[in-house]
Simulated scan of single mutants.
Amino acid sequence: MDTKKIISIIAVAGIVVASIIGVYVYINAFTHNTQFSQEEVYVYIPTDANYEQVKEIVSPLVKDFEKFDFVATSRNYSTNVKSGKFLFKKDMTSFDMVRSLRLNVPVNVAFNNQETLTKLMLRLATQLEPDTLALNQAFTNESFLIENGLTKETALTLFIPNSYEFYWNVSAKKIADKMAKEHKKFWNAERLAKAKALNMTPAQVYTLASIVHKETVKADERPRVAGAYLNRIQQDMPLQADPTVIYAIKEKSGDFDQIIKRVGGSNLFVKSPYNTYINKGLPPGPIAMPDISAIDAVLNAEKHNFIYFCADPNRPGYHSFETTYEAHMINAKKYAAWVNKLGIKL
Rank of each mutant, 00 (worst) to 15 (best):
I233Q: 14
Q234I: 05
Q234G: 00
Q235Y: 02
Q235P: 08
D236L: 06
D236F: 05
D236N: 11
M237W: 07
P238G: 06
L239M: 12
L239Q: 15
L239G: 12
L239A: 13
Q240W: 15
Q240A: 15
Q240Y: 12
Q240M: 15
A241Q: 11
A241L: 11
D242Q: 09
D242G: 06
P243Q: 12
V245M: 08
V245C: 11
I246A: 04
Y247N: 05
I249S: 01
K250D: 02
K250G: 01
K252D: 04
S253L: 01
S253V: 07
G254M: 09
D255W: 08
D255F: 08
F256S: 01
Q258I: 09
Q258N: 02
I259Y: 05
I259T: 07
I259E: 12
I260D: 03
I260F: 05
I260L: 09
K261F: 08
K261S: 06
V263M: 01
G265I: 00
G265W: 00
S266T: 12
S266L: 06
N267I: 02
L268W: 11
K271L: 07
K271S: 11
K271W: 00
S272L: 07
S272G: 04
S272P: 00
P273Y: 02
P273R: 04
P273A: 04
Y274T: 11
Y274V: 09
Y274E: 12
I278N: 05
N279R: 13
K280L: 12
G281L: 05
G281R: 01
L282Y: 03
L282C: 09
P284K: 03
G285S: 09
G285T: 07
P286G: 10
P286A: 13
A288Y: 00
P290H: 02
P290M: 03
S293D: 15
A294N: 11
A294Y: 00
A294C: 08
D296Q: 13
V298L: 10
L299G: 05
N300H: 07
A301P: 01
K303P: 01
K303L: 03
N305E: 13
F306H: 14
Y308C: 00
Y308W: 02
F309G: 02
F309P: 09
C310H: 05
C310E: 08
C310Q: 05
A311F: 14
N314S: 15
P316H: 11
G317F: 01
H319V: 02
S320V: 13
S320K: 15
E322G: 03
T323C: 00
Y325K: 00
Y325M: 04
A327D: 14
I330Y: 07
N331Q: 15
A332M: 00
A332V: 03
K333Q: 14
Y335L: 00
A336F: 14
A336G: 00
A337N: 15
